[in-house]
């Protein structure tokens, strides 16, 4: 993005203002700023219980400059469906519904409601700001926790290496509902993130974006490294960024210089127990499989916009 455009973006009215209570360096808070920058002000946001709800809603202090509602943990998608139905009935068609939930509310406790919403195709853009555990309660395991990550309810120990299972492949499950748009994004590539949100807004019906939002507090890295950790996650292949339209992958974010998974893992306390273990190989194999599966290596296709945006390569 050129200088002029960046200044314009900065001058835009901020829809997610200062004074919220996210931890310093919060990837989720940054993602939300850019989501709203991409949607503009004509949206109603529904947020299920979680970090985002807690740090943005202490009574009397709201950073949201768009109408926002939090109801419960497991019903973000269905409250959003209700809002969408009301807007349709009222013929307020230019107002769009956005649900922004954490991985706990999306992968786990709200999964049934999410599937219902997707199957009905209700006109909601559902965005999962994914930090891979229940951070609001101190970092317990969720269905989004990656393999071998330490959590407080699946800690490494003499008989354990942390999370035993792979992260649920939710984008694939969402896509299987036949929705028009599914994408993964990372807070490390903000231009790509905004572009995907804008693209999602061009469709009607249920759409889904899953954004990797590193969490300095629980993943255990210094707060200035949030984007660095996010970038390494993408560059090692563990966090594939792609978008699907009508069931087909239409773009992937190519990895220019692949890095070993250890570079990503060693920055994070949640993986420290793994660094001298043989099982590390399994994660490297998993990353390599992911790279092959999505075709992440090699030059970008001509005209692919996704490599031009985002942060500077380091």
């Amino acid at each position: 993005m050129g200088k002029k455009r960046k200044r314009d973006a900065a001058a835009e009215e901020e829809l997610f203002v200062s004074g919220h209570r996210a931890c310093p360096g919060c990837g989720m808070a940054l993602a939300v700023r850019h989501i709203l920058r991409a949607t503009g002000k004509d949206v109603i946001v529904v947020t299920p219980t979680g970090c985002l709800e807690t740090f943005t809603s202490p009574y009397g202090y709201s950073p949201w400059r768009v109408p926002w509602i939090h109801h419960l943990f497991e019903n973000g998608p269905s409250v959003a469906s209700g809002v969408a139905a009301a807007l349709k009935a009222q013929k307020r068609d230019h107002i769009r519904v956005l649900a922004i939930g954490g991985d706990g509310g999306t992968f786990d406790i709200g999964f049934g409601a999410l599937s219902g919403m997707l199957e009905r195709g209700d006109d909601v853009l559902y965005i999962c700001v994914d930090n891979g555990a229940y951070m609001n309660t101190g970092g317990q395991r969720s269905g989004a926790t990656p393999l071998y990550a330490a959590t407080t309810t699946d800690p490494p120990g003499r008989r354990s290496l942390g999370k035993r299972e792979r992260k649920k492949d939710l984008p694939a499950i969402v896509a299987a509902h036949g929705v028009p748009y599914v994408a993964t994004a990372s807070v490390a590539y903000l231009g790509d993130l905004r572009r995907k949100v804008r693209r999602a807004m061009a469709f009607r019906g249920s759409r889904y974006i899953q954004i990797d939002t590193p969490c300095p507090s629980v993943w255990g890295f210094p707060s200035h490294l949030t984007l660095e950790v996010g970038r390494l996650g993408v560059k090692c292949g563990l966090i594939p960024l792609y978008e699907m339209e009508n069931g087909q992958i239409v773009s992937v974010k190519r990895i220019k210089r692949k890095v070993p998974v250890t570079e990503y893992l060693r920055l994070q306390r949640r993986f420290h127990h793994l660094l001298d273990r043989d099982e590390l190989k399994r994660l490297q194999e998993f990353a390599d499989d992911t790279i092959r599966r999505y075709g992440l290596l090699g030059p970008s296709e001509k005209g692919g916009s996704h490599d031009r945006e985002g942060g500077p390569e380091r």
Partner: peptide, 22 residues
């Protein structure tokens, strides 16, 4: 608008969202 949901939890949630939207 008739929203045919996947559970009663969602039925009550849909009407709550609709009510909040006016």
């Amino acid at each position: 608008q008739y929203v045919r949901v996947e559970s009663e939890f969602s039925a009550a949630s849909v009407v709550s969202g609709a009510s909040a939207a006016g």
